[in-house]
Design a protein around this nucleic acid. Sequence first.
DNA 1: CGCTATTTTGAAAGGGCTCAAGAGTAGTGG
DNA 2: CCACTACTCTTGAGCCCTTTCAAAATAGCG
Lengths: 254, 254
Amino acid sequence: MTPVFLSSYANDHQVAKATPFARAQNLHELFTSQPREHLEASQAAFFEGDDAKHVFEVAEGTLRLFRILSDGRRVITGFLYPGDIVGVLLRNKYLYGAEAIGPASLRRISRKAFEEAVADSDALRPEVLSRICDEMAAVQDQLVLLSSKTAEERLCTFLLKHLQRALAGGSADAIIELPMTRQDIADYLGLTIETVSRTITKLIGKGVLTVANPVARHFIRIEKPAMLAHLSGDGDAKPLALGSLLCHRDRLPH
Amino acid sequence: MTPVFLSSYANDHQVAKATPFARAQNLHELFTSQPREHLEASQAAFFEGDDAKHVFEVAEGTLRLFRILSDGRRVITGFLYPGDIVGVLLRNKYLYGAEAIGPASLRRISRKAFEEAVADSDALRPEVLSRICDEMAAVQDQLVLLSSKTAEERLCTFLLKHLQRALAGGSADAIIELPMTRQDIADYLGLTIETVSRTITKLIGKGVLTVANPVARHFIRIEKPAMLAHLSGDGDAKPLALGSLLCHRDRLPH
DNA sequence: CGCTATTTTGAAAGGGCTCAAGAGTAGTGG
DNA sequence: CCACTACTCTTGAGCCCTTTCAAAATAGCG
């Protein structure tokens, strides 16, 4: 929550003239010509309830999306990583706040320009839909996690997702970086910070993971990925096998 | 889970020829010329993992959207009411199953026809976006509910939402119908059926609501709407006042 | 009226929370 | 270099809410 905003910010209407958004072949290109805006740790890009006037793309760093409840509690609804776009799926107000976990930078264009570009482009629309699908799928998974998983399952699911992201990103070893604090993880998983800490300790005890000591507690090495996956509770047994087999005849024909 | 599918089902490619979807002024019109398909109680329209070949509109009744976990537990991710459309926001497979709570009927068109109609119509696209926004907002709210609300708050939130739906629908009195079973409510709120039952009993004890005896337990009269709202935990104190006021200077300028 | 499914109620156990203190990690300045 | 402070994280003990297990009551239906 420290102040000061350093980077210069160019009015996006000027930029809009210079760069014909209509020619963009993918959403990323909409942002490439925009100036990078830098965020300090804990600095917010916007708050819940702000007028949603811009769409942002994360250039560097990690952001947290959060809502503050009336009793002061915070719920983290998701994290944003480089390449992620935020601000698309809403009416007039942002549904959540977004703030940098560490130093971060992003680019923005106005919602108006974004929507016009998407409306005019047959290439962009499917990508928007595709990203929205991913986002919805992620929120649904989170919903399942919160409604029926234990603390250990939640944490393992969380770590597993990060492991998959790291491996997909080309990382050879099973070391994952968790830039967010324990409190962030707790608020994301619907637990307390104490439970997160205790559960990590328990997983270390089981030999599932170790903390990469030297640098910080924010780097974790997964020693037993298979066990992690098993403990995550996302059934090696296919979730839908039962329903499909037992009730196949009850389905509407097609 | 009883079998038998009664209504005749016309291949939607034939129908597509007869009705030019491109002329539809709203999404509802896409379905009006389609035959109604009837569902018995507990009969599924589709299951999680099925190829997502159709988009459905609910004509009558209530459906539940659910996922079955590997350990057999069920999570209900939402309910569908008349006028709701399902099957839009996904890639190739349905992310959840959908089954009728009581007798229900729906209309369908192929995803291909739906997507073509939407792609061709400047009138339809905003409506799709608008509905997706609502859905995302609802899931986000559910996420907050599951991650930080108590059993009583969850149930009150649930009842309040139904009350608002009933009042918005023109219902003069504060009686709401809950067509779903207690087990459905439990699976939706991330609780057990016993806790749901006990919490309702407690709310009756507080005078917040009464059960409309004659017909069934599925009709509930809200005696103290204000208290219900208060107990729902969605703060009469604005959730974002704190963040907005304290940290206004930390936000990115715009 | 009897059968079944759903709901309610009761008692006991458990998992995560709360409260509280201790340990490790920076960053600052003498 | 070492206090000093501030912050994050870990660990401990007791409690509470929800779950679990079990049984009774009520509703739905042939």
